[in-house]
Design a protein around this nucleic acid. Structure first.
Lengths: 248, 248
DNA sequence: TGTAAAAATTGATTTAAATCAAGGATATTA
DNA sequence: TAATATCCTTGATTTAAATCAATTTTTACA
């Protein structure tokens, strides 16, 4: 473990750079932010104003970390622009992509509600703006407007569902199946079309699906071999046989 | 997939028996129940009474299901006595043990807050009593007493942390490491002692750790070989070298 | 736009763990 | 307490996927 611990510390360092954080004055980008997110957008105008008063807008350049494992960060971060990837480092130092946040999604709740140290990292993968609310301010809001809690609970609940589903897949399905299910879920978003645009590169996809880029390459080639899919370009795949894909 | 679908339906049937449900009058076992759980036990006496008024106590025999995947169950279940195992069936019909609930733990929240169908089963693994609250009643309570929401949020948050940690382990660690970490976490509970009492049989442990009973047997034998642990009896293991175990 | 860096593919090989099979140990309950 | 069923262990074999290595393709950016 000693060797691994050193490894992790190196990784921590590599993974966590807090340079160049840009704070904005109130009321710049975060009006949109509050009215955008499901957890707040059901409120009355004056209530939103109240929230905006305790919210700060912060922007990050591509590659910068919003927070890192073991950070004593005590804020909730709501994405208003850009994309953030949330990942973990395993005990052995491997990177595991958990999810990618888009405008309207939030993160930072682990630091808000649980006391334990965690191993989660958040990194901007493009030019990104977030609204932040401090732990104490958020707790005040949750107590004052209980309907916000219900929204956050709903969001947590679907995240929990998602995470448990993913864990079950890692534990019980082989890589080919996980890839097939991933493709199907990518398709669901943009209904009607049978053409899937991969939301990330193959390296990240491998990390998300708990495998390697080599295996992704090979399995996709196999799926093309059996004519379940057709590889159009690097990021585009046409689904030829959905039932076939689901039977993998 | 057709073959698998049939498989799953068979499993559903096998996994779900709703016979012999025993309702109790109010106020029997569930006084203890409300005052027991973290999400309610911080409230005033009269508030607890209010909750008890909308709570029913139900008991289950060993092997009976509290709920099953796709059930339109709309209640929260709080364990007051016994043990419940929560598990999923994978797309291919394999059982995956998610967690075991003890008195004070609750379940059923997926049905309460998220709309999606899910694949989660809850089964009593011994004589068990639960308190149930209907979705609509719980929502009323959450809106009336916002501090309950904060407690539930805290619980969700730690479950989410746990689930993501587990998913990362499945995706990035080999079986031997997962077993070693499991043993260490079993030890944490009963501090001071280096003797671990396994909380489940090896078959369930395999299902929980995403492997097979054969592999569990072999890996434990290997860990004994290297003198990191000593197998005392079927359910008892002595930790000889904690650092060694963590370095696996 | 050209060049360097990063990502993706393909092949050969190794490795971890599942599966199959059979005997032995524990539990359950009649 | 005997009998049956379930669970656990150990061995032999197979299989899926990781790793290592070498190109090729794509992307980033100077």
């Amino acid at each position: 473990m000693n060797k691994n611990k050193v490894e992790i510390q190196k990784q921590d360092y590599k993974h966590c750079s807090h340079d160049h954080i840009h704070y904005h004055a109130h009321g710049e980008t975060h009006e949109t932010c509050i009215s955008l997110v499901p957890i707040f957008n059901h409120l009355e105008k004056e209530q939103m104003d109240e929230i905006m008063a305790v919210t700060y807008s912060v922007s990050f350049k591509k590659g910068e970390n919003i927070y890192c494992a073991k950070d004593k960060s005590d804020s909730l971060y709501i994405v208003s622009k850009g994309k953030i990837k949330i990942y973990r480092l395993s005990e052995s130092g491997k990177e595991q992509l958990l999810r990618i946040l888009h405008p309207g999604d939030f993160t930072g709740e682990l630091a808000l509600f649980s006391e334990t140290v965690h191993e989660e990292y958040a990194k901007a993968i493009e030019e990104t703006s977030v609204c932040t609310i401090k732990r104490s301010e958020l707790r005040k809001l949750l107590l004052k407007y209980p309907s916000i809690s219900l929204k956050v609970l709903t969001e947590f609940s679907s995240r929990l569902e998602q995470s448990e589903k993913q864990a079950t897949r890692f534990a019980t399905e082989k890589v080919e199946t996980r890839i097939a299910l991933f493709l199907v879920e990518c398709m669901d978003n943009e209904k009607q079309s049978t053409e899937v645009v991969l939301p990330m590169n193959k390296k990240d996809m491998a990390s998300y699906l708990g495998t390697t880029p080599e295996t992704i390459s090979r399995k996709l080639a196999e799926l093309e071999e059996t004519e379940y899919i057709k590889l159009i370009s690097n990021k585009k795949i046409k689904i030829l046989d959905l039932d076939g894909l689901l039977s993998v």
